[in-house]
Every structure is written in C-alpha cells, then in structure tokens.
Nucleic acid binder design. Structure first.
Lengths: 224, 224
DNA sequence: AGCCTTCGCGTACGGTGTTCGCGAATGTTC
DNA sequence: GAACATTCGCGAACACCGTACGCGAAGGCT
C-alpha cells in the first residue's frame, strides 16, 4: 500500500558496500558546485558545468546524486556547516541574534543561498546540528515545540529575505522598477506614491538595527 | 554614457501606433499563463505551452513579451488585481491584516504565487494600486517613508512564506524530511530534536492566530 | 491603390536535466 | 592467481527549454 519512495540523500550510503569504489566524494562535488555558484551564480550550476569543473562527464554525477535538486540540497547544507556555534548564554534573544548575524554573513558570502533557503528549506546533517543548537538556546523557553520549529524556520527565512533585499538593491532590475514608480508618480492618481518621491536619503545606517528589531519582534510573535 | 536599457514591460506600449494590429492582448496571454500555472504548476508555464494554449507558435509570444520573465511579471501583477481594497478605517493594524488575509487567499488560489512573490518582487499597475492603498492605510503613521515601503514588502513576503509553508506540508518531500529527522533522533547525539518527536499533535487551530500575531509583530518591528 | 509598419511564426541554435547501456575497474572469494 | 559479483565512469541520445532571425502576410493611412 504505502508506496516505497526514495529517501533523502543523507540516508543513502555515500559509498557502496561492494564493487569498484567511487573516485569522488559528495563533499568534493558539493565544493565544486558551491565554488561555481559563488563565482557565476546559481544558473551556472548545471550538471554539465559542475561535471566539467571536476573533469568528468555529466552522467557521472548521477552516481553521487539522484537529481539536480539533491545537489542543491547538498550545497545548502554545506553552508550550514559554516556556523560557529558557541554554547547558549541563557539570553535566548541575544543567542538567536548571534545566529542570525552569522546567517546573514554566510548568505552574503554565498549570494545564491537566500533563494534556495526560501524556496526549498532543507535540513541535512549540518542543518540538523544548527537546529539542535537553536533548540538548545530555546530550551528554557515555555513555548510549544512546534512554535520553536517555526521560530527556527522564520529565523532562516527572514534573514534570507533581508539579504536578498540588500543584494537586489544593486541589480539593474531595481533601477527599472524605480523608473516605473517615478513614472507612476508623475502620471497622477497615486498621491501617496508621488509623495514618496519627495524624500530621497536612504538612512542605511539604521538598516542593521532594523534587521535585528524586525527579527526579534517576529520571533516573539511565533514564540508567544 | 548611461547605457540605454529596456524599460519595464508596463512602460512599453501594448499596441503599436502603426502597422498591423496585434491579434491578442497581454491580458489574454496572461490569463492563459495563469490558468496553466493554476492547473499544472509553474514549471508547465513554458513559452511553447502557453503559446499552444493560445493556438499559436512560441515565437509569437515575443511580440507581446520580451522574455519569459516578463510573462511571469504579468502573471504576478494580474493576481494583485484580485484584491478588494476598501477605504482605510483608521486602524492601520486591522486594515493591514485585512490585506494580508486577502493576500493569503489569493496565494492559496494560485499556489505558484508565493515563490514568484518571494524571489522576484514586482510592481505593475495593480501592484502599484495595492501599494498606494497600503500607504493610504499608513498615512497617519509617523514612520519614515522608507520604513513604510519595507513594511509593504514584508507584508507580501511574510504572507508568501506562510502560504508556502502550509502548502509544502502536503508535499511528499516533507514526508522524506520528517523521516530523516526521525532517523537523526533515533541515532542519538541530538537530544533536543529527539525530545521533539515525543509530541505529535499539531495544533492547527491556532495557526491563523499565529499568522496574524507574527505578521503584526514583524510590521511593528519595521515601523518602529 | 500603394506604401509602410507591424504581426505571425517556422526554423534553428545552444543549452538543459536525465536515462540507458556497456566496457572498465575493483574488492572478495575460491 | 583466477574467477566472479558488483559498482563506477561516462558517451550518446531524448525530450525539452528560452530565444534570435527572417520572411511572407496583413492591416491602417494617405
């Protein structure tokens, strides 16, 4: 009855018990994919290009990964290994903020990460360690377990949104969007938007505080 | 010096001033794409498939849209036309919650929307109307204009995250992820996660309240 | 009626993810 | 050391994809 389905990649053995041993490792392939994404963006991470970076053929990758999605999952989890998890201090808000700030730095290091984190949240071995740590930080908090899980998800997703927002500001697409808003303002019929154009100075110095305050408030929202 | 770049699609005239008139309209194409996405998901929205739904060739679409991204932008903006915008009551929190709940319904109607809203926020004519309305709701609020813009973005993105979360719960991928978590819990070394498995009942009845409380708290976070 | 401009779209190019099948390579067993 | 079982590497192929080009046809304006 219950259709037997392929398990998550981390539950499949990396090395077969018998036969010819593999020439490469998941870590090696993941590293190549991450480096490619860092250098040329997520769209450059095609099976062929990753394989080429490893001096092999595209079909070979399927010995290590059952689909491209698996490769992306490996990439995401590998970045979860970049956290520096120090023991909880007892102040859960402060501890979570430390996590969030690290998340922000990691995502800035890997500009392709926010999109992946948001569109397909995935927990691998490193992600599980991170989750365990967050649960440890929240151990004394009286919220329900489900709420703590949601808080973890929100921490990741909100940080990803923020980083994506600040990375997108430099994109040429944002300039087009701004031009259209200006066009709308000039056309009339949208007085509030037109009034917006009067101010120009973006107070960037307050952005980091805003990141913290929004995050903490949202977290207290889920944790009740 | 300043490289002349193609403007946003809504600044280009839909109908050329001279020559043979177009046989179709942007709205027609957008409707076909939306219906296709509603029925078979976003991946089914390829230029060829949309064109086939309109009984035409793929290349024809490029008379109406300069790239597939433009088509996706049209789809997103068309859903922004589904809001029912009633005049502000004076209670900005309540008014924004009304907007957010509508956003949630719209996104549930169009399961492909959250991903697009999150990964490429786009403002077309309908989106601009929505923004104008939100600014109207916040007219009496003393926050900086930039903060109000961020509040608008956060309202959309957070709602999209929530809907995406509740839609993903039914996906088979979630079952795999849960199985892995259970595996980790059984393996030891992650006591907090193992403790999580003890509880089972997901109190779904409180989810709507959580949506509201998280949203309001996050919004008050940006608005100061 | 003629012109001018745009439209429709067949065709083609370079790319994508993924499958199949087979020869080669290896650890294990006799 | 030879035979075997099993896996690995991967070339080739398939079905798509987004997009550019170019040309015949179609319609509005003068």
């Amino acid at each position: 009855m219950t259709g037997q389905q392929e398990p998550v990649i981390w539950m499949r053995p990396e090395q077969a018990a018998a036969g010819r041993p593999a020439e490469r490792s998941r870590a090696e392939i993941t590293a190549a994919a991450v480096e490619l994404a860092d250098r040329e963006g997520l769209d450059a991470v095609s099976m062929r290009r990753v394989a080429a970076a490893l001096d092999t053929g595209a079909a070979s990758l399927y010995r290590y990964v059952s689909a491209r999605d698996d490769l992306l999952a490996l990439m995401v989890d590998s970045t979860a290994g970049e956290y520096d998890l120090s023991p909880p201090t007892g102040d859960w808000q402060a501890d979570l903020l430390v996590i969030a700030r690290q998340a922000r730095q990691i995502m800035q290091r890997h500009p392709w990460l926010p999109e992946l984190v948001i569109t397909r949240p995935v927990l691998g071995p490193h992600g599980v360690d991170l989750l365990e740590h967050v649960l440890d930080v929240l151990a004394g908090h009286p919220a329900e377990p489900a709420a703590k899980l949601e808080a973890f998800a929100l921490l990741n997703a909100l940080t990803a949104l923020f980083v994506q927002h600040e990375l997108a500001a430099a994109a040429p697409e944002a300039r087009r969007q701004a031009a259209y808003l200006q066009h709308i303002a000039a056309a009339g019929g949208h007085p509030r938007i037109a009034a917006l154009q009067a101010v120009a100075a973006p107070p960037a110095d307050t952005s980091r505080d805003r990141f913290a305050s929004v995050l903490v408030r949202a977290l207290t929202g889920v944790l009740g």
